[in-house]
Amino acid sequence: MVGEAVSARDEILARLRTALADSPPPVQVPRGYRRVDDRPDLIATLVDRLEDYKAVVHHGIDALPRLLSEVGRLAVPTDVPADWLAGYAGELHRDSPPLSPAALDDLDAVLTGCAVVVADTGTIILDAGPAQGRRALTLVPDRHICVVRTDQVVGLLPEALTRLDPRAPLTWISGPSATSDIELNRVEGVHGPRRLEVVLIDSGA
Protein backbone atom coordinates (compact mmCIF):
# COMPACT_ATOMS: atom_id res chain seq x y z
CA MET A 1 0.00 0.00 0.00
CA VAL A 2 2.50 2.57 -1.20
CA GLY A 3 2.88 4.86 -4.17
CA GLU A 4 0.13 5.99 -6.49
CA ALA A 5 -2.44 3.59 -5.11
CA VAL A 6 -2.90 5.63 -1.91
CA SER A 7 -6.05 7.71 -2.24
CA ALA A 8 -6.20 11.32 -1.11
CA ARG A 9 -8.65 10.20 1.53
CA ASP A 10 -6.35 7.58 3.00
CA GLU A 11 -3.33 9.83 2.79
CA ILE A 12 -5.04 12.73 4.57
CA LEU A 13 -6.37 10.47 7.31
CA ALA A 14 -2.91 8.94 7.72
CA ARG A 15 -1.31 12.39 7.93
CA LEU A 16 -3.79 13.43 10.59
CA ARG A 17 -3.17 10.28 12.60
CA THR A 18 0.56 10.91 12.46
CA ALA A 19 -0.04 14.49 13.54
CA LEU A 20 -1.80 13.21 16.65
CA ALA A 21 1.12 11.02 17.68
CA ASP A 22 1.26 12.90 20.99
CA SER A 23 -2.15 11.37 21.90
CA PRO A 24 -3.88 14.48 23.31
CA PRO A 25 -5.89 13.65 26.43
CA PRO A 26 -9.70 13.32 26.30
CA VAL A 27 -11.57 16.62 26.55
CA GLN A 28 -14.48 17.18 28.89
CA VAL A 29 -16.64 19.92 27.34
CA PRO A 30 -17.88 22.27 30.05
CA ARG A 31 -21.48 23.17 29.25
CA GLY A 32 -22.05 25.81 31.87
CA TYR A 33 -23.86 28.13 29.49
CA ARG A 34 -27.59 28.79 29.68
CA ARG A 35 -29.77 26.28 27.89
CA VAL A 36 -33.14 27.55 29.06
CA ASP A 37 -34.26 31.16 29.17
CA ASP A 38 -35.64 32.42 32.46
CA ARG A 39 -36.88 35.77 31.14
CA PRO A 40 -40.56 36.26 32.02
CA ASP A 41 -41.77 37.80 28.77
CA LEU A 42 -40.24 36.13 25.75
CA ILE A 43 -42.66 37.75 23.33
CA ALA A 44 -41.63 41.26 24.37
CA THR A 45 -38.00 40.28 23.89
CA LEU A 46 -38.78 38.80 20.49
CA VAL A 47 -40.59 41.91 19.31
CA ASP A 48 -37.73 44.09 20.52
CA ARG A 49 -35.17 41.99 18.64
CA LEU A 50 -37.20 41.77 15.44
CA GLU A 51 -37.75 45.51 15.36
CA ASP A 52 -34.09 46.09 16.13
CA TYR A 53 -33.34 44.32 12.84
CA LYS A 54 -35.93 46.39 10.97
CA ALA A 55 -38.45 43.59 10.68
CA VAL A 56 -42.06 44.82 10.96
CA VAL A 57 -44.17 43.11 13.61
CA HIS A 58 -47.97 42.78 13.48
CA HIS A 59 -50.13 41.31 16.21
CA GLY A 60 -52.98 38.87 15.64
CA ILE A 61 -54.33 37.01 12.65
CA ASP A 62 -56.64 39.96 12.01
CA ALA A 63 -53.63 41.91 10.76
CA LEU A 64 -53.23 39.55 7.80
CA PRO A 65 -56.10 40.65 5.49
CA ARG A 66 -55.00 44.27 5.65
CA LEU A 67 -51.36 43.27 4.97
CA LEU A 68 -52.30 41.01 2.08
CA SER A 69 -54.58 43.61 0.55
CA GLU A 70 -51.43 45.46 -0.51
CA VAL A 71 -50.04 42.37 -2.23
CA GLY A 72 -50.96 41.96 -5.89
CA ARG A 73 -49.33 38.61 -6.54
CA LEU A 74 -48.71 36.29 -3.62
CA ALA A 75 -46.71 33.06 -3.44
CA VAL A 76 -47.75 30.46 -0.87
CA PRO A 77 -46.68 26.92 -0.01
CA THR A 78 -49.16 24.26 -1.06
CA ASP A 79 -50.21 23.60 2.53
CA VAL A 80 -50.84 27.18 3.61
CA PRO A 81 -53.71 27.26 6.14
CA ALA A 82 -56.88 28.42 4.41
CA ASP A 83 -57.80 30.89 7.14
CA TRP A 84 -54.62 32.90 6.50
CA LEU A 85 -55.92 33.69 3.04
CA ALA A 86 -59.46 34.57 4.09
CA GLY A 87 -60.68 37.38 1.90
CA TYR A 88 -57.54 37.55 -0.20
CA ALA A 89 -58.52 38.99 -3.57
CA GLY A 90 -55.15 39.18 -5.31
CA GLU A 91 -53.38 36.72 -7.61
CA LEU A 92 -52.53 33.60 -5.62
CA HIS A 93 -49.62 31.39 -6.74
CA ARG A 94 -49.42 28.03 -5.01
CA ASP A 95 -46.04 26.30 -5.32
CA SER A 96 -47.48 23.34 -7.20
CA PRO A 97 -46.10 22.57 -9.67
CA PRO A 98 -42.94 24.23 -8.31
CA LEU A 99 -42.62 27.83 -9.39
CA SER A 100 -39.46 28.59 -11.34
CA PRO A 101 -36.98 31.10 -9.91
CA ALA A 102 -37.98 33.52 -12.66
CA ALA A 103 -41.67 33.07 -11.84
CA LEU A 104 -40.97 33.64 -8.14
CA ASP A 105 -39.03 36.76 -9.01
CA ASP A 106 -42.18 38.20 -10.60
CA LEU A 107 -44.26 37.84 -7.45
CA ASP A 108 -44.68 40.57 -4.87
CA ALA A 109 -44.58 38.59 -1.65
CA VAL A 110 -44.57 35.18 -0.06
CA LEU A 111 -46.67 34.11 2.92
CA THR A 112 -45.44 31.24 5.13
CA GLY A 113 -45.37 29.94 8.64
CA CYS A 114 -42.22 28.81 10.44
CA ALA A 115 -40.87 26.02 12.64
CA VAL A 116 -39.25 27.68 15.65
CA VAL A 117 -38.43 31.23 16.69
CA VAL A 118 -35.63 32.31 19.03
CA ALA A 119 -36.67 35.32 21.10
CA ASP A 120 -33.16 36.14 22.35
CA THR A 121 -31.84 36.78 18.86
CA GLY A 122 -35.06 37.48 16.94
CA THR A 123 -34.42 34.47 14.72
CA ILE A 124 -37.11 32.75 12.67
CA ILE A 125 -36.23 29.20 11.67
CA LEU A 126 -37.78 27.47 8.67
CA ASP A 127 -37.41 23.71 8.27
CA ALA A 128 -39.51 23.07 5.15
CA GLY A 129 -42.22 21.75 7.49
CA PRO A 130 -45.94 22.67 7.59
CA ALA A 131 -46.89 25.95 5.88
CA GLN A 132 -43.28 26.70 4.90
CA GLY A 133 -42.61 25.12 1.53
CA ARG A 134 -39.24 24.76 -0.09
CA ARG A 135 -36.33 27.13 0.41
CA ALA A 136 -36.59 29.06 -2.86
CA LEU A 137 -40.11 30.16 -1.99
CA THR A 138 -39.03 32.38 0.89
CA LEU A 139 -35.90 33.57 -0.86
CA VAL A 140 -36.75 35.03 -4.23
CA PRO A 141 -39.84 37.20 -3.60
CA ASP A 142 -38.80 40.58 -2.23
CA ARG A 143 -41.23 40.55 0.70
CA HIS A 144 -41.64 37.76 3.22
CA ILE A 145 -44.70 37.70 5.44
CA CYS A 146 -44.21 35.10 8.16
CA VAL A 147 -46.83 33.93 10.61
CA VAL A 148 -45.41 33.02 14.02
CA ARG A 149 -47.48 31.24 16.66
CA THR A 150 -46.52 32.06 20.23
CA ASP A 151 -46.04 28.36 21.00
CA GLN A 152 -43.28 28.32 18.40
CA VAL A 153 -41.25 30.87 20.36
CA VAL A 154 -38.40 29.71 22.58
CA GLY A 155 -36.03 31.88 24.58
CA LEU A 156 -32.55 30.76 23.68
CA LEU A 157 -30.83 29.20 20.74
CA PRO A 158 -30.11 25.86 22.49
CA GLU A 159 -33.85 25.43 23.08
CA ALA A 160 -34.49 25.87 19.37
CA LEU A 161 -31.99 23.25 18.27
CA THR A 162 -33.74 20.55 20.26
CA ARG A 163 -36.90 21.18 18.22
CA LEU A 164 -35.18 20.81 14.84
CA ASP A 165 -34.48 17.83 12.61
CA PRO A 166 -30.94 18.27 11.27
CA ARG A 167 -31.81 16.32 8.12
CA ALA A 168 -34.29 18.97 7.03
CA PRO A 169 -33.01 21.94 5.04
CA LEU A 170 -32.89 24.73 7.62
CA THR A 171 -33.02 28.46 7.02
CA TRP A 172 -32.48 30.80 9.95
CA ILE A 173 -33.71 34.31 9.33
CA SER A 174 -32.92 37.30 11.53
CA GLY A 175 -34.41 40.37 9.96
CA PRO A 176 -34.38 41.28 6.31
CA SER A 177 -31.36 40.77 4.09
CA ALA A 178 -28.55 43.08 5.13
CA THR A 179 -24.88 43.81 4.63
CA SER A 180 -22.14 45.38 6.70
CA ASP A 181 -19.62 45.29 3.89
CA ILE A 182 -19.35 49.02 3.37
CA GLU A 183 -17.43 50.65 6.21
CA LEU A 184 -18.87 47.98 8.53
CA ASN A 185 -22.15 49.84 8.75
CA ARG A 186 -25.23 47.69 8.50
CA VAL A 187 -27.69 48.50 5.72
CA GLU A 188 -30.81 46.44 5.13
CA GLY A 189 -31.77 45.05 1.77
CA VAL A 190 -29.47 43.12 -0.55
CA HIS A 191 -30.30 39.81 -2.25
CA GLY A 192 -32.75 38.17 0.09
CA PRO A 193 -36.20 39.63 0.82
CA ARG A 194 -35.80 43.29 1.61
CA ARG A 195 -38.94 43.38 3.72
CA LEU A 196 -39.63 40.93 6.50
CA GLU A 197 -43.01 41.16 8.22
CA VAL A 198 -43.93 39.00 11.15
CA VAL A 199 -47.51 38.30 12.17
CA LEU A 200 -47.58 37.08 15.76
CA ILE A 201 -50.60 35.00 16.66
CA ASP A 202 -51.46 33.70 20.09
CA SER A 203 -51.66 29.93 19.95
CA GLY A 204 -53.30 29.80 23.38
CA ALA A 205 -56.23 31.93 22.29
Binding site: Y53, R135, P166, P169, L170, T171, I173, S174, S177, A178
Partner: peptide, 9 residues
Amino acid sequence: ERMNPYTSM
Protein backbone atom coordinates in the same frame (compact mmCIF):
# COMPACT_ATOMS: atom_id res chain seq x y z
CA GLU B 1 -24.93 41.18 15.72
CA ARG B 2 -26.99 38.98 18.00
CA MET B 3 -27.55 36.83 14.95
CA ASN B 4 -26.56 37.25 11.34
CA PRO B 5 -29.50 37.71 8.93
CA TYR B 6 -29.26 34.27 7.30
CA THR B 7 -27.90 30.88 8.28
CA SER B 8 -28.38 27.93 5.93
CA MET B 9 -27.99 24.29 6.92
